[in-house]
Design a protein around this nucleic acid. Structure first.
Lengths: 193, 193
DNA sequence: GTTTCTTGATTGACGAGTCAATAAAAACGC
DNA sequence: GCGTTTTTATTGACTCGTCAATCAAGAAAC
C-alpha cells in the first residue's frame, strides 16, 4: 500500500526516532534496526532513504541545530535593544527543549563526533561562529572594542554551564544557569576595562 | 617467558594503550584487540587482567583523573595566598597535558559515558565537587559570601573554555583560555556585589 | 608440581548494508 | 477508458564482517 510522497515523512520520522534512541542509549551505540523500529519501518527502508548510519546521525544533529537556531532567531527578533538581544541569545541556550535528556545526549555525542567527522566538525564550527557573531553584534553598542572578548567568555560560559547543568550534581536547573550567565553579562558591562 | 609480577606492568600498559587508542579513534569505539596489540600483548591477556572492556575504560578514565588531580594538588601546594591558589587551580586545567588529543578525546567520551554509567557518573561528580570545593576555599578570603557563586561560574567557564579550546575554530590555545579565566577572576573580584 | 603468565583458536552473537521480490500508484500509449 | 510500463515504496532474507569473551594448553618460574 505504498502511498506516494512518503520520503519527507519517513525522513522526519527517522530523525525523530534517532534522537529518541540516542537519548535512551546515551550514546551513538544505536542500531539502525532500533531506529527503524521506533520509526515504524524496516531497517532496509532507513538505509534506502538515508544511505547509511552516519548520514542518519548527521541529519538528526542538523535537525537539532535547526530547531535551536529557529528558537534563537525568534527570541532575537522580539528583543528590543542591545541588552535585550544579548539576554535573548543567552536565554535561548537554556530552554527546556535543550535540556531534554535526548537533546543533551545528542549534543554530547556530537562533541565526540566532531573530533573525527569533518562533517560534524563543520556543523559545530557553524554553530560556534553564529553564536559568537550574534553575541558580538549585540554587545558592540554596549562594550565597543571589548565586545569580542566578552562574547568569547559568554559563549564559553554558555557551553560550560550547559555541561554542568546537564551532568552536574543536582538536577538540571535552567533558572540557575541563566542567572549565572546574566550575572556575567552584568559584571562584564559594569567593569570599565 | 613469563616473568613474575607482571600484573601491575600489564595493567599500566593497557591503561596507557587504551587512552592512546581512544585518542586515535576519537571515540570509545575501540576494540580490545587494538588496545592489547598496542600494549604488546594478546587480547586474551587484557581480558584476563581486567575482566572486560568496560573495566578497562573505567581504569583509563580513573588514571586520567588521578594524574590531573595530582597536577592540581602540586600546583596548589606551591601557591602562596588565596589569589595564587585560585590561579593555580585555573592553570592546572589548561596544562599541555590536558590538551593532548587523546586526553581531550577521553574527557569528551567520559561526559558521554557519565550519562549512562553510574560508575563514570560518580567519578565525574567527584571531580566536579573537588574543583568546586578547591575554588571556594581559595575564593572565600577574597570574596566572602560570593565565593560559592563565583566558584560556580569559574568552574563552568573552565569546562566551557576547555571545550572551546579543544573543539574550537582555531587551534587549541591554552594561553588564551587561561587568559580569559584569569580575566573573569579579575572582574569578579573587582565588582563589589 | 603448583602457580603465574601467556596465547591461538574458537564460539556465539550482533549488526551494517545489499538484494530480489512484492505491491501500489502514476504515467503512458492508444 | 484500458492494458502496459515505469516509478515509488516497502520488506524479509541474506551476506559478510567484526568483536567480546572463553578455553584449553604451553611455558617459565618457584
Amino acid at each position: 500500500m505504498p502511498k506516494l510522497g512518503m520520503e519527507p515523512i519517513r525522513r522526519a520520522a527517522l530523525v525523530k526516532a534517532t534522537i529518541a534512541e540516542i537519548g535512551v542509549a546515551g550514546s551513538l551505540d544505536v542500531t539502525v534496526s532500533q531506529i527503524a523500529r521506533r520509526a515504524g519501518m524496516s531497517s532496509a527502508l532507513a538505509h534506502h532513504y538515508f544511505g547509511g548510519k552516519d548520514q542518519i546521525f548527521l541529519a538528526a544533529m542538523r535537525h537539532i541545530m535547526t530547531v535551536y537556531g529557529a528558537e534563537a532567531r525568534g527570541a532575537l527578533a522580539m528583543a528590543d535593544g542591545p541588552r535585550a538581544r544579548a539576554e535573548a541569545i543567552i536565554r535561548a541556550g537554556f530552554t527546556t527543549t535543550n535540556f531534554r535528556r535526548d537533546v543533551v545526549a545528542a549534543w554530547l555525542n556530537f562533541y565526540v563526533l566532531a573530533q573525527s567527522s569533518p562533517a560534524a566538525r563543520r556543523l559545530l564550527t557553524l554553530y560556534q561562529r553564529r553564536l559568537q557573531s550574534n553575541l558580538i553584534h549585540a554587545l558592540r553598542p554596549l562594550a565597543g572594542d571589548r565586545a569580542a572578548d566578552i562574547a568569547t567568555r559568554l559563549a564559553a560560559l554558555i557551553d560550560g554551564m550547559y555541561l554542568h547543568a546537564a551532568l552536574g550534581v543536582h538536577l538540571p536547573d535552567t533558572g540557575m544557569a541563566t542567572h549565572h550567565l546574566l550575572t556575567l553579562l552584568d559584571i562584564e558591562l559594569k567593569v570599565a576595562g
